[in-house]
Write a protein that binds this DNA or RNA. Sequence first.
DNA 1: CTATAATTGGAACGAACGTTCGATAAATCA
DNA 2: TGATTTATCGAACGTTCGTTCCAATTATAG
Lengths: 229, 229
Amino acid sequence: MCAASNLARPALASRLRPRKPVAESRFDRRQAEILKHATEVFYEKGYEGASMRDLSRATDTSLAGLYYYFESKERLLYLIQKHTFTTIVERLKERLQGVPDPEQRIRIFILNHLEYFLANQKAMKVLSHEDDALKNGFGQEIAGIKREYYRICVDLLEKFKEAKALEFKSRIAVLSLFGMMNWIYTWHNPRVDANAAELARQMGDIFLRGILAAGPGKAASKKKPGSAN
Amino acid sequence: MCAASNLARPALASRLRPRKPVAESRFDRRQAEILKHATEVFYEKGYEGASMRDLSRATDTSLAGLYYYFESKERLLYLIQKHTFTTIVERLKERLQGVPDPEQRIRIFILNHLEYFLANQKAMKVLSHEDDALKNGFGQEIAGIKREYYRICVDLLEKFKEAKALEFKSRIAVLSLFGMMNWIYTWHNPRVDANAAELARQMGDIFLRGILAAGPGKAASKKKPGSAN
DNA sequence: CTATAATTGGAACGAACGTTCGATAAATCA
DNA sequence: TGATTTATCGAACGTTCGTTCCAATTATAG
């Protein structure tokens, strides 16, 4: 984890913290808690719409206190995005280990994405919705993680395509899949809609059947699902 | 069209405009032009991030001049959203007339959506991205149009489902389809990606095959989705 | 305990925000 | 032409923005 080392200390707290062998210090704990509440506020009001005073109120911290933990509002958003994105990629890699079947791997991708998305819906909306709010330095790093995640999905699809001798445009397919999954932050209601596993199954069915029916050569729209090759 | 009657006049211009039988007055033309430029600014900076001074600069209008044409910043966003959404629904209804085949009707829906989306990409991003920026009064009217549009799509799908004796959750299917289509504002690059007709064909293929393969009864792919956790 | 570092809050900074006002210029019509 | 509406402008209003400074408070170490 080593979360602390990633976080810039404000001037007052910039001295090296000596011997702190335990996992997280008081500083780290409080910082994480502020981030959690800040995520909620960004979720509700958007990045530009949320003021530091909103965050101050929501986190029960004085305005100056916020600047003790975060050097700027932008950095706050950056930390939320980085943590969220890094975690989802980490979990995906763990889950993919030891699973060879191409279709199964795609289903794992979908499940991992939806599960994390729904469990951290607010953070994920902030991630999806404010993905161009960060200026050059910060923005590029997040964009890099995003590109890696996208690459993983493309690779999964192309392995699948190869194994089944299919023909379709990977780029369109991947981006369609992302669209299906990411859009849920606009409509998912936990009291009405199914949970992540069930959604993953349904979306996986639609998507996988959709690309599975695309045999080599023609891509006819009439029902000819049987001819996989 | 009668666009003028929908637009609130500021106090100075609130008197009824007598006999203006021709399509659009000077007022309407200038207002429409400001809206066009404002759409661009909202697209680039977001609603909260764009200031009236940004809009003033982009439209070559003084700050006070803006308030002669629009009574508030919120109203500006409202007019952009309303015009965009109303137009897309109108066009869809026209295109659906006289087409009986359920599959064909869904393909028309997709094509209409993507075509309008790509031709008015900036307005559509503003529409998708700022859909909760409007306060109660304005927001509900836009939400109403959106609900109508959603309903149309559900009906198309259910007719299709009935005709083909399929079984799938319409809600999930519709929202997945919207996700696929709406997400393009985050990635579409006209110099790299296909045009609307081709995209509509590809997405239509993925989506229609996906739901078409869901015959009555079981909806199984051969493997069960691996351990949910 | 005292001394030192970590943490907090109150008050204020200049800048930018959305909006308003009153005066002026341009267009329209008698 | 003069009278009257339509359009545009610069300047300012009060508020809120992100951020900073500094004194006061609390926790930790010697």
